[in-house]
Structures are given as C-alpha cells and as structure tokens.
C-alpha cells in the first residue's frame, strides 16, 4: 500500500549566463532558478493494484518514482510505502521493492548475468527454493537460460532488459516500480515483459507502478491510470471508468482536398460532436456520439463544407483517451 500526500519536488537549477563573465558571476552570486518537477501530488495505491503513471516527457514521472523508491528526498509532502517513509528508511523499504529504470541497468557489465543474480540472491537473502522457482518462471517466459551465462555487455537490448526485469523480481518484492521498462524494445520482448509483469501482478498480488509511453503496456498490465502533466495530476481513474467516459465517442479521420478555415469550429458548435480539430493542413479529426450520428451522416455533414478525399474510422483506444485528457488538461491550465 502506497500513500502520497501533497508531494512536491523542486530542483534548484544554477543560472549560468553564457561565457566566462557569466560563469564568474554565477560563482560569486550563485543564482538559481527553481524548477518544480512534481507539485502537490496526492494518490494512494492498494496492495495488488496495477497502476500506469503516464504523462508527456518532463511531466515528473521519473522524479515521482525516484521519491517513491527512496533515492530522492521530497522538498515537501509525505510518502508511505507499506507504512515506511522510503527516504528516511531507505534500506528497510528496499527489502520490499523491486525497481527497473529502463534507461539504466543494474547488471554488472563485464561478468556473467548469473553472477549478478547470485549477488542479488545474497543481498536479499533469497532462500534457495524461492530463487530456483523464480528462475524457472523467468526461464519459461524469458528464455533466460539462453543468455544467463553471458556478460551483460554481450547481450542485445532485449535480452538485457529481460535480465534486468528478472533481477528486479528475484526476491519476490511486494511492490514493483517500472520506469519505462519497455523503452526501445522490439515487439517480442515487449510482449514477454508484459506477460511476466501481468503474471506477478495477477498471481502473486504484487503492486505494479508503471510508466510507459507505449499504451499497449498500459492496456495489458494496468487497471488504473494516473496522468501527470507539468508536475500535477490531471487524471486518476480506473481504465474501465475512463472507457465509459471517453471511448463512447466514435472517431473519424477525414482527409480533405480543400476546406474552409472555420470548419472545425462550425462542427464543434453542433450538439453530439465532442471534438473536432485539424491534425495537419489536410487531416480533420472528429469525434461524435454514436447515438446521435452515424459515421455516414458525419461524412455528409463535412462534405457540405469541404471536398473529401478519404476517410477512416478510428478505433476507440486508450491512446485517444489520453490525448483527450492532455488536451482538456491544457485547456484548464
């Protein structure tokens, strides 16, 4: 169980005007700019939940994860992970958590992966039975035995990430933090990573906190989404709830040969049309309530104002829901 209250992290960024003069001035005056990376964030996560923590680049996801894992001290606010303040009792907290930072590795670079694993087994004092059982599971899903004897340096990115995820799970943590674990991976590896994460969540009741830009990860693994943007939480909902609110709308993407400038505004003015905007100079994106229009009626309506070259139905997807959440966040901000 994780609870976060009024969590804020500010970074002091040195202001260094360009050139030698600037550098000296900075040395003397020591000017800093304050960057608020996470601002008054609140949420709580029950044991066994699988939560996606998503947002655009620079939103504050990694900063939040770093605070939850105890390696970064919050500027203010309160965090409890399984009843423990992770920064103050970092070592105690570390026993119960597993962490993957997709952009880093925790494996030793020049020695066989199995040696890194053996080291972790000692550190966490994992009993032999648990260790062997876990290795069996990782083998089954990841084919770990094929490359466990090689050094991390000699692994492909996909193999390395599998090994890294396995390393984070060796000690049966109750809570797992995954910061962009699938970044840069091929489809096959992504699938395998998702399968393992799903299984430990469903079968062992492990809490998952996942950040990713791949919404397929989110769809497959998570049941709840927290969206952060500009350091603030702009949405925190069950995915099923979101689907009800957002995905009821149908979407069409229409390619236009020519058009009138005020077309999107005119369409938006009509009841039953929830969204209309130009994606680029020739592509109109339009969302509508299926109980009020058929797709054909929408095309007809647009055809009154513009010549249509092509159109296609857009499936309701998490991706589009998130897009809308971002847009509504921008409007209210």
């Amino acid at each position: 169980m994780i609870s976060v209250r009024k969590l804020t992290k500010e970074f002091k960024i040195p202001v260094k005007p360009p050139g030698m003069k600037g550098a000296i001035r900075h040395l003397i005056r020591g000017e800093y700019k304050v960057k608020v990376a996470v601002e008054s964030v609140d949420f709580s996560i029950e044991q066994g939940e699988a939560v996606a923590y998503i947002g655009p680049n620079g939103a504050g996801k990694s900063t939040t994860i770093k605070m939850l894992t105890g390696i970064l001290k919050p500027t203010s606010g309160e965090i409890l992970v399984n009843g423990i303040d992770p920064q103050r009792h970092r070592i105690q907290n570390a026993k119960n958590i597993g962490v993957v930072f997709g952009q880093r590795t925790q494996l030793w670079w020049d020695i066989p992966v199995e040696e890194s694993f053996a080291l972790l087994k000692n550190i966490y004092e994992v009993p032999d039975a648990v260790y062997n059982e876990n290795l069996k599971l990782f083998n089954e899903i990841f084919g770990l035995s094929e490359f466990i004897g090689r050094s991390a340096r000699k692994l492909s990115l996909g193999q390395r990430m599998r090994a890294d995820l396995a390393a984070a799970l060796l000690h049966n943590p109750s809570t797992v933090f995954l910061d962009e674990p699938t970044i840069g991976l091929d489809i096959g590896t992504k699938e395998a990573m998702r399968e393992l994460i799903q299984r430990i969540n469903r079968e062992k009741g492990v809490t998952i906190i996942l950040t990713s830009h791949d919404l397929k990860d989110v769809e497959d693994i998570c049941r709840r989404i927290i969206v952060i943007d500009g350091g603030r939480i702009i949405c925190d909902k069950e995915i099923s709830q979101l689907t009800k609110e957002y995905a009821m709308d149908r979407g069409l993407q229409i390619t236009l040969l020519d058009m009138q400038k005020e077309l999107p505004a005119r369409l938006l003015g009509q009841e039953g049309i929830s969204y209309a905007a130009m994606e680029d100079a020739h592509t109109l994106e339009i969302h509508f309530k299926p109980e009020m229009y058929t797709a054909f009626e929408i095309v007809e309506e647009v055809n009154k104002y513009a010549r249509i070259q092509d159109f296609r139905l857009r499936e309701p997807s998490i991706e589009r829901m998130i897009e809308k959440i971002y847009r509504s966040g921008e409007q209210s901000a």
Binding site: K66, T69, R90, I91, I97, F101, R104, I123, Y124
Partner: peptide, 13 residues
C-alpha cells in the same frame, strides 16, 4: 551520471 540509483534501491549499506 546517476548510476548510483540502482545501488540505493538495494537493502544494503
């Protein structure tokens, strides 16, 4: 370079 992060998430001194 921040690679200390993975050591700090381990239950070790």
């Amino acid at each position: 370079d921040g690679s200390i992060a993975s050591d700090l998430t381990k239950p070790i001194d």
